[in-house]
Nucleic acid binder design. Sequence first.
DNA 1: TTGGCGATTGGCT
DNA 2: GCCAATCGCCAAT
Length: 202
Amino acid sequence: MSTHPKPLDREGLLMDTAVLAQFLIGKLIVRAFPDMLATARIVETEAYLTGDEASHGFRGPTPRNKVMFGAPGFAYVYLAYGVSFMLNVSSAVAGTGEAVLIRAAEPVTGLEAMKRQRGDVPTRDLLRGPGRLAKALDIDRRLDGIDLCSIGSLWLASDGESAGDIGVSVRIGITKDAMRPLRFFLKGSKFVSGPASLNAAL
DNA sequence: TTGGCGATTGGCT
DNA sequence: GCCAATCGCCAAT
């Protein structure tokens, strides 16, 4: 039984959402499976802001997106294209509808549990892409609204290691407000998703 | 009550 | 590279 990594402090997440998206690169996401802990290092995120037409929060709070309008550090989980779940971290003070999408991560521990969820895929592809990440970590709407700053079924932690160089690009898969530089990724990581043209290490 | 629309993925050409 | 699958959400009827 491995030790449970200490959750991030909620107060420490109160910052500009685009900055939080960069802050989360290199942090750990921890999933408690019945038989083991799975952990992964976040390597790719996107910020969704107030006044951002690509954001689910753009038209104000609804039953689906209400977590975005709550306090920071809670999970906003939704189903995309009727096929894939997306994990977001709520950001900014309550009343503000902003969030950070977790797009990809590098597996660290609990590979067996994650491969059990995903089937026979290469380790590199386990958490490469937001839908794959959610599937590997068994994340769905049951986890919508859970506290990511306390030990439970899913939380965020840090192992104290610095992230490395962070790259910036436009966000993937959106059509509105498509030119904003709000996607962040760990330069050189083979666990990052998206086209090589966006991931070039400049 | 309805229908148009996705913050994607995997399979096929 | 192209595209269908699949379904919850929500603005408009």
